[in-house]
Structure formats: C-alpha cells, structure tokens
C-alpha cells in the first residue's frame, strides 16, 4: 500500500505552517475495506495525513536531518465523516519548537466546515541511542517531498524558495547510479 495520506502541498512556509490537499477517492482500498459495507475515509488516516503534513513541516527546518517521529496525539476532535469525492484542506501550524521536538496544531476542513482538529507532538530522535538508526532513507524521503510538491511551493519566511537539500540530491544520484 502507498503510505501517502496527503496528495500535495499547496503552501509551505519553513518552520511556520503548511497547507496541503487531499482528494478522497473510491480507488483507495481503505475507503471500502476499513468498514466493509460503509464507504468512508478512516479517521485514523486523517490524523496520519496531518502527521505527514506537520512532520515534514518540522523536519524541513533541519533540512530533514532530525529523525522526526509522531510522539503524541492530543485533543483530537472529529466533527464529521469524510466520503469519496471530498476534497480536504489540511493545515498544520507550528506552535512550539524545541531541540527535542516540536508541537503542531492540525486542522482539516471541507470547504468552510471543520472536519478534524488535533494537537500533534513530534519528537526528534537525535540522542546517542539513535545514532545508527535511519528512519527514512534519504532517497525515499526526497521522493516523498517531491511527489507532494513540497519543493515547488515551499518558501522560507523571507520568501526565498526552499531548495532540495544537498544530501537528498546526493542520495538521488547514488540511487540512479546503483540502478544501472
């Protein structure tokens, strides 16, 4: 299964906020297999989409060097079900940033209607226990960012575009050479 729960970023300001969209489709297996007979998009995957939107937002600040994981979900409120054909807008706003982790307010809207609101806490697994751990291969993380159009819309706070980190480009080149 493809583990992408937002379709693309529409706005992305480094360390501040990100907006993304997702179109829910009947071609997604989860829509009818999660609860056979009922076609709705699982609430847990709405949270996962916000975690992807917010996780990439806070990871980008370190050029994706911080090993960023979703550590806590707080105050999750689900206001309505999501069905096929719905186009959702995801919004994640950084509310706190510390050396050990970051805090994000997440919301999903369907038009003017609030669908989900949640507080997310991300931890940066950077201490010595995780030195040898790679959570995401750089080439995979880079692909995810490119597929979600992060580098096409991403800006720094001063308006400069966010460029693809050097270590991502190196990983892509290495993967290309290895594939030949």
């Amino acid at each position: 299964m493809r583990w992408f729960w937002i379709d693309r970023f529409t706005e992305f300001v480094s360390g501040k906020y990100a907006r993304a969209m997702k179109a829910v489709s009947l071609s997604e297996e989860v829509v009818d297999e999660y609860a056979p007979g009922l076609t709705y998009f699982p609430a847990s995957l709405l949270i996962e989409g916000l975690a992807q939107c917010g996780g990439l937002l806070v990871a980008q600040v370190s050029d994706f060097h911080n090993r960023t994981v979703l550590a806590k979900i707080g105050n999750a409120k689900f206001h309505r079900q999501v069905h096929c054909g719905h186009v959702l807008e995801y919004e994640t706003v950084v509310t706190g940033f510390q050396p050990q982790g970051a805090f994000v307010d997440g919301k999903i809207r369907l038009g003017d209607e609030l669908v989900v609101e949640v507080d997310l806490m991300f931890a940066f697994l950077n201490d010595e226990r995780f030195e040898s751990v790679t959570l995401f291969e750089p080439v995979d993380l880079c692909r995810m960012c490119r597929l979600m159009r992060l580098f096409e819309v991403g800006l720094h706070e001063d308006g400069r575009p966010i460029s693809v980190p050097e270590h991502f480009i190196a990983a892509e080149k290495a993967a290309l050479i290895n594939s030949h």
Partner: peptide
C-alpha cells in the same frame, strides 16, 4: 520520557 517534552512545552505556554 517523551511526556517530559510535552509537560515542559505546556508549562512554558
């Protein structure tokens, strides 16, 4: 251990 990050953030706020 992960909760301390959350507690510190909430107290700071």
């Amino acid at each position: 251990s992960i909760d301390f990050l959350d507690i510190v953030f909430k107290l700071e706020k």
